[in-house]
Amino acid sequence: MITPTLHPLPGTEHGGLPYLPAGPGTVLWGRLPCDGDAPVLRVEPGRRFVVDTVSHEGILEDQGRDPLRWFAERGVEAADVPRDAVEVAATVEHDPLRWGPHVVTGPVEVAGARPGDVLSVTVEDLALRCGHGVVSNRHGRGALPGEFPLAGGTGPFSVLARVDAAPDATGTGTGSMPVAPGDARRVRFPLRPFLGLVGVATPGQRLHSVPPGMHGGNLDVSLLGVGSTLHLPVQVDGAGFYVGDPHYAQGDGEVALTAFEAPLRAVLRVDLVPAAAVRLRDVLWAETPELLVPIGLDPDLDEAVRRAVRTAVALLADLGMHPAHAYAYLSAAGDFAVSQVVDRVCGVHGTIRKADLAELLGARA
Rank of each mutant, 00 (worst) to 15 (best):
A85Q: 15
D95A: 08
P96I: 06
T91N: 10
A85V: 00
D95P: 00
A89W: 02
P82T: 03
A78F: 02
V92K: 11
E77G: 13
G64L: 02
R98M: 13
W99R: 14
H94D: 12
G64E: 02
V76M: 01
P96L: 12
A90D: 14
G75M: 01
G75I: 02
W70N: 09
G64V: 00
E93H: 14
L97E: 15
V92D: 09
W99M: 14
R83C: 04
E77F: 00
A72R: 13
A90T: 06
W70D: 07
R69M: 07
G64I: 00
R69C: 06
V92R: 10
A89H: 05
P96W: 08
V92P: 03
Q63T: 06
A78H: 13
R74C: 02
H94W: 15
L97H: 12
A72P: 09
R74A: 08
T91E: 14
D80A: 12
W99A: 14
G75N: 04
W70H: 09
V76D: 07
R74M: 02
Q63P: 03
E87T: 11
Q63S: 11
A79R: 15
W70P: 10
W99I: 05
E93W: 07
H94I: 06
E93I: 01
L68Y: 07
A85T: 10
V76A: 08
A89V: 05
R69I: 02
R74Y: 01
V81S: 08
D95H: 05
G64R: 02
A89T: 07
P96M: 08
T91L: 14
V81T: 11
A79E: 15
D95Q: 05
E77W: 04
E77N: 11
A79I: 04
A79W: 01
E77R: 14
G64N: 05
Q63L: 03
E73G: 11
A85H: 12
D80W: 01
A85D: 09
P96A: 08
E93L: 11
T91R: 15
H94P: 03
E93T: 12
P82C: 07
R69S: 13
R83W: 05
D95Y: 00
E77L: 13
R83P: 04
V88Q: 12
F71D: 06
W70A: 10
F71I: 04
L97T: 13
V81C: 08
A79G: 13
E93N: 06
D66Y: 01
A89L: 08
A79D: 15
V92G: 06
A78P: 10
H94C: 09
A72L: 07
R83I: 00
F71V: 08
W99N: 14
L68H: 12
R65C: 10
A72V: 03
R98K: 13
V76F: 03
A85S: 13
P67R: 04
R98A: 14
E77P: 11
V86F: 06
R98N: 12
L68Q: 12
A85Y: 00
A78E: 14
T91F: 01
R83A: 15
R65F: 02
E87S: 12
A79S: 15
D95F: 00
E87M: 06
W99T: 11
L68K: 08
G64F: 00
D66N: 13
E73Q: 13
E73R: 11
F71K: 03
A78S: 14
D95C: 08
R65L: 05
V86I: 14
F71Q: 05
A72T: 08
Q63H: 11
E73K: 09
A89N: 11
W70E: 09
G64H: 01
T91P: 02
